[in-house]
Amino acid sequence: MSFSELFNSFYTIFYKEVARYLRLWKQTFVPPIITMSLYYVIFGNLIGPRIGEMDGYDYMSFIVPGLVMLSVITGSYGNVVSSFYGNKFQRSLEEILVSPTPSFIIFLGFCVSSAIRGILVGIIVILVSLFFTELKIHSLGAVVLVACLTSFMFSAMGMINAIYANSFDDITIIPNFVLTPLTYLGGIFYSIKLLPEFWQDVSLLNPMLYIVNAFRYGMLGKSDIPLLHAYSIIIIFTIVLSAACIYMLDRGIGTRS
């Protein structure tokens, strides 16, 4: 396929996906606003003042970056896993599989559109936080870079989940039993410096910790871990997951008999 044909294929998948989640805005954008508002009210306004400062910042300011990342992750992952599996379930994915659209374009079409949903949700959650606290941006570049990479990385992860899924149960297991616990234990609500040394070491095995801290650095200028480690982990995961996705689509794993 020529470049313009590849672009047309990509744009078709991308546009279809974006149009879908914009059309379903009550399901895609309203729930994170309500959930995050509750977090801000309960943890930030009610419990926060009793906790006091965390790493030199008031508790509300400390938790905002983590909650934004939580929204970005669930938004991007949830979008691609439900959409791609939905296409598989309805068999409308066959429309794309019989066409000459190459695997990397299928991957990009689904993942870029889902990453954008994650970023849009993140922006909305930041805007909601303005009702509760002052917006602090230490490094806009770091904020944008981490948000984009994280969103894309979790889109790729969601796609792998959808590729392997054989039922609607399969698309909820990873988000409920793996992603959410790891995210909560990834330092959204606390600094790992509060933990005993052993649990600090265990926490370093959690990739979410690197993501939350890299984003927190972008907003507050503070991080529990070296930034180079955080960026390296995010970039390596993004590359490995993307390559795995394209390989699976190419081989027809989970999509062809």
Binding site: M1, S2, S4, E5, L6, N8, S9, Y11, T12, I13, K16, E95, I96, S99, P100, T101
Partner: peptide, 12 residues
């Protein structure tokens, strides 16, 4: 139908 054409790389 539009999407089908798009998957084959046809211009809109």
């Amino acid at each position: 139908l539009y999407q089908q054409g798009g998957y084959y790389g046809l211009p809109p």
